[in-house]
Design a protein around this nucleic acid. Structure first.
Lengths: 131, 131
DNA sequence: ATTATATTTGACTAATCAGTCAAAAACTAT
DNA sequence: ATAGTTTTTGACTGATTAGTCAAATATAAT
């Protein structure tokens, strides 16, 4: 019953993910998310409750669906750098991700993604650092 | 001539560094910096010009004085995740740091610091991940 | 068609943000 | 002491922030 949702939650979470990846958590404003999704604030809030809720749902969805994708890794790093220390729920999510991570060298995976986000690496040097 | 500075720039930069490390760049407010340093906004602005200036000076000082300390690495990661993509000056600074980095495995160094910042690692497991 | 329920709409709010600036204070040189 | 210079002070500003909510709209069940 009731009015139908005008959007698919998982599609919106994909868009939300790219915005958080681009600007970080604190660097992303609700207006950024409103513009990117095409939804209005009220719709976003009724679907996710808060900006934090939007981030958690985006992170969870990404972890569930594509554990080692570039977007997932970047969201994980943003969560670790900006949120985990003060947010138990997010820290638990990240612990789970860490435990189940398929990569043989998570630290290097994270470090590579940090370097990539910074834009200081040219394409050719993305895999190893001559040292 | 003129009134003497009531503080030593390098001491204030140490304090500023710890605040940015704790809250990130976007997550740090001027009020946070005012409280932590004990200086007033006007003094901070006349010394550093802007919040970005405070971060750049803190990062530069740390890179110059203790290239591979924990605080330096964390500031580097914050700069890489939040600022480098859109700020040429900061990206140049980071490129220089990367080029001159003494570590044999920068990616792992960065990844370890990200994990540490998140608080998901217990002390015993900080150096290797059983996998 | 009426009732009940779920979603959308977007103007609104209170709080917080980075940054400014004129006046006061503290210093040096003469 | 006076003039010249620099720093400090903190109230102020306009912009932006996350979040709210009553009204409008759209759907399903009866």
């Amino acid at each position: 019953m009731g009015r139908k949702k005008s959007f698919q939650q998982s599609e919106i979470l994909k868009i939300i993910s790219t915005v958080f990846v681009k600007y970080g958590f604190e660097g992303t404003s609700l207006d950024d998310l409103v513009k990117a999704t095409g939804l209005l604030r009220g719709s976003l809030y009724s679907a996710f409750g808060s900006k934090r809720g939007m981030f958690i749902d985006a992170l969870s969805e990404n972890i569930k669906q594509q554990k080692d994708s570039e977007i997932t890794i970047t969201l994980v790093i943003i969560a670790m750098m900006e949120l985990a220390a003060k947010d138990n729920t997010i820290r638990r999510l990240l612990k789970q991700w860490y435990k189940e991570s398929a990569s043989s060298n998570v630290k290097e995976l994270l470090g590579r993604a940090v370097l990539k986000q910074s834009g200081i690496l040219k394409e050719e040097e993305k895999n190893s650092h001559g040292k």
